[in-house]
């Protein structure tokens, strides 16, 4: 297995880059970071709609959440794969298709995390803001969201870890990411699938394990920060 790593580490790390398209672990990380990064603002909008005083807005956001959570990610990938080129009239790179599906999927899951955070904030915070004459949106922007986003930071990072694993589904539409690279290695070697896919598992696991440990540290920090309600940052 070490010899596979020695021979193909560059392919697993960056794909054919710089002689061909970027791929491998680098593309996996780019997909996950861009996916969460683009989903984040969308998720805030959905979470605000979910907690909005307007019934119609709440209902439509709720419907979106139900629909997306009730369907597998793979289905979104297929839909994006066939629908986006049909709508745009041109072919679209697999990475963009994958990103599109990820953003839709992750924004809904992140929105649920943020909604939970909004509802967990003591009602007194909103009441105090409204009592001084702030509007609903001012209250959300100035008082609620800064506290909520800090509190749910660990959950957001957890969602990022899930996203890393979900990028492997890009394989089905030939997105050049880590699983795709591993499969290429397997095709070259032909006789050592167990070694190759064990190596793949170890790479995913190591990455996610390190990040999960970061989440745990972050959770402790946020917990402490919440207890002392902010002791530092002057």
């Amino acid at each position: 297995m070490i010899d596979i790593l020695q021979n193909y580490w560059l392919l697993l790390l960056v794909g054919q880059f710089p002689n061909g398209p970027l791929g491998g672990l680098a593309m996996t990380l780019i997909l996950a970071v861009c996916g969460i990064g683009l989903a984040f603002p969308c998720s805030i909008a959905i979470a605000l709609a979910l907690t909005s005083p307007f019934r119609a807005l709440r209902a439509s956001a709720q419907a979106l959440v139900y629909i997306v959570r009730g369907l597998p990610l793979l289905m979104f990938i297929f839909w994006a794969y066939f629908a986006i080129p049909a709508l745009l009239g041109t072919s679209v790179p697999g990475v963009v298709t994958m990103l599109f599906a990820l953003v839709i999927y992750e924004s809904v899951y992140l929105a649920e995390v943020i909604r939970g955070g909004i509802q967990a904030l003591p009602a007194g915070q909103t009441e105090a803001a409204r009592a001084m004459g702030l509007t609903h949106l001012q209250t959300q922007r100035i008082v609620v969201l800064p506290q909520v986003l800090y509190n749910v930071l660990p959950s957001i990072l957890s969602q990022f870890i899930s996203t890393i694993k979900e990028t492997s589904l890009g394989y089905v539409i030939s997105v050049n990411e880590l699983t795709f690279a591993a499969n290429q290695v397997n095709s070259i070697l032909l006789t050592r699938p167990f070694d190759v896919y064990l190596l793949l598992a170890i790479i995913y696991f190591t990455l996610c394990f390190i990040l999960t440990s970061c989440v745990r540290l972050l959770e402790l920090r946020v917990e402490r920060g919440r207890k002392s309600l902010r002791l530092k940052t002057q």
């Binding site: 003591p122 007194g124 915070q125 105090a128 008082v143 506290q147």
Partner: peptide, 9 residues
């Protein structure tokens, strides 16, 4: 308010 409700951030 009874619980002060200052904004902690």
């Amino acid at each position: 308010f009874q619980q002060f409700n200052l904004f902690p951030h």
